[in-house]
Amino acid sequence: MREIRRVGMADLAAAVSPIILTTIGLGSCVGVALYDPKAKVGGLAHVMLPQSNGPVVSNPAKFADTALPLLVSKMQDYGATTRRLTAKVAGGAQMFHLTSPTETMRIGERNVKAVLEWLEKAGIPLLAQDTGGNWGRTVELNTETGEFLVRTIARGEKCL
């Protein structure tokens, strides 16, 4: 049996092949998988919010702008190189359709946008994404192959 390591909400982890990294029940949160195919090092973040506000961040894994640099640095500790990294992204749904959509309501969309903007700035190519909609997702990053499996309750599963 392969070791499966679970990444919690507002958490992140890096691992080397053949460990599988998973995070469960993404709604408006976004699962960001980074992968270095040569070093076979993977990283997975369960991002909850787009931006950290203020200088003191108690948990950098919570925000897109602080989680992703931290994830890259953890992957470097395992031998990953930034210029080889590629990204796959899933989540960012809008689970509830309320009649008065406030800023928080569109949190999923804003999370995805913040992640994609950060990746572009960091020069990490986005290979695939499965984002938006109104359904939850569970994801698994296979650090041996870089495959990113997205599971849902009512819409089956797909491999990115």
Partner: peptide, 27 residues
């Protein structure tokens, strides 16, 4: 109370919108 909305899905996904509101100020 405002108009209710329904989601039938994974518990984590149903909860995270509410938690996100707290995320900005708390863990």
């Amino acid at each position: 109370p405002m108009v209710p909305a329904l989601a039938v899905d994974m518990a984590g996904a149903v909860l995270d919108y509410i938690l996100a509101e707290f995320g900005q100020v708390a863990d």
